[in-house]
Simulated assay, not measured.
Amino acid sequence: MRLSNLADYAVVLMSAAARHCGEPRISAATLSAETGVPMTTVHKLVHLLVKAGLLRSVRGAGGGVKLSRPAAAISVADIIEAVEGPIAMTACVESGRHDCVLEGSCSVQPHWSAVNGAVRGALSGVTLASLTGAPA
């Protein structure tokens, strides 16, 4: 199992934003410069993270982004789900998905939700504050 580059970059950007939590806002250009994430990717991720309610954005001169809540209240799971959607180890864990050829005869399928819950729980237990040393 591996995170997409976009989800990885989202965690990196959110960590950078958390390190600037005492400032009014941080610009996309500063995020890009500090993290090495290309500007086009920064803009895409900022849009997704604002839409998910993890960042607040102000446009125009003096604009930028900031965390929408304390770093201790944002988990790695929140960030990943903002970019990739619900965490699902297999398609059969996602509600409404019925596209597996083994559905109906799979003896493992009933147990995937426990595995999925454990992974999501572990990611939920890691806060942005714990990654960055940002104030709680």
Score class of each variant (00 low, 15 high):
residue 1 M to R: 00
residue 1 M to L: 12
residue 1 M to N: 11
residue 3 L to C: 01
residue 5 N to Q: 15
residue 6 L to I: 01
residue 7 A to Y: 12
residue 7 A to K: 05
residue 8 D to E: 12
residue 9 Y to K: 10
residue 12 V to Y: 05
residue 15 S to I: 10
residue 17 A to R: 04
residue 17 A to H: 05
residue 17 A to V: 15
residue 18 A to I: 03
residue 21 C to V: 04
residue 21 C to D: 14
residue 22 G to K: 01
residue 25 R to E: 10
residue 26 I to L: 09
residue 26 I to V: 11
residue 30 T to P: 08
residue 31 L to C: 07
residue 31 L to S: 08
residue 32 S to N: 11
residue 32 S to V: 05
residue 33 A to H: 11
residue 33 A to Q: 00
residue 33 A to T: 01
residue 36 G to A: 06
residue 36 G to V: 10
residue 37 V to H: 04
residue 38 P to T: 06
residue 39 M to S: 15
residue 39 M to Y: 14
residue 44 K to F: 03
residue 44 K to P: 01
residue 44 K to D: 05
residue 46 V to W: 01
residue 46 V to R: 02
residue 47 H to M: 11
residue 48 L to P: 02
residue 50 V to S: 07
residue 50 V to I: 06
residue 55 L to F: 01
residue 55 L to E: 00
residue 57 S to Q: 15
residue 58 V to E: 01
residue 59 R to V: 00
residue 60 G to N: 11
residue 61 A to F: 05
residue 62 G to H: 14
residue 62 G to W: 14
residue 66 K to L: 08
residue 74 I to S: 09
residue 75 S to C: 07
residue 76 V to S: 00
residue 77 A to F: 09
residue 77 A to R: 11
residue 80 I to Q: 06
residue 81 E to K: 14
residue 83 V to M: 08
residue 85 G to K: 04
residue 86 P to N: 09
residue 88 A to C: 08
residue 89 M to N: 12
residue 90 T to F: 10
residue 90 T to E: 07
residue 91 A to P: 11
residue 91 A to S: 14
residue 92 C to V: 13
residue 92 C to K: 00
residue 92 C to T: 06
residue 94 E to S: 12
residue 94 E to G: 00
residue 94 E to R: 12
residue 99 D to T: 07
residue 99 D to K: 13
residue 101 V to I: 14
residue 101 V to H: 15
residue 105 S to T: 07
residue 106 C to N: 04
residue 109 Q to G: 00
residue 110 P to N: 09
residue 110 P to T: 03
residue 111 H to M: 13
residue 111 H to F: 11
residue 112 W to M: 10
residue 112 W to R: 09
residue 114 A to T: 07
residue 114 A to V: 11
residue 114 A to Q: 13
residue 117 G to T: 09
residue 119 V to D: 05
residue 121 G to R: 01
residue 122 A to W: 15
residue 125 G to Q: 10
residue 125 G to N: 07
residue 127 T to S: 15
residue 127 T to V: 00
residue 130 S to Y: 15
residue 132 T to L: 02
residue 132 T to Y: 02
residue 133 G to W: 13
residue 133 G to H: 02
residue 133 G to Q: 13
residue 133 G to R: 04
residue 135 P to S: 12
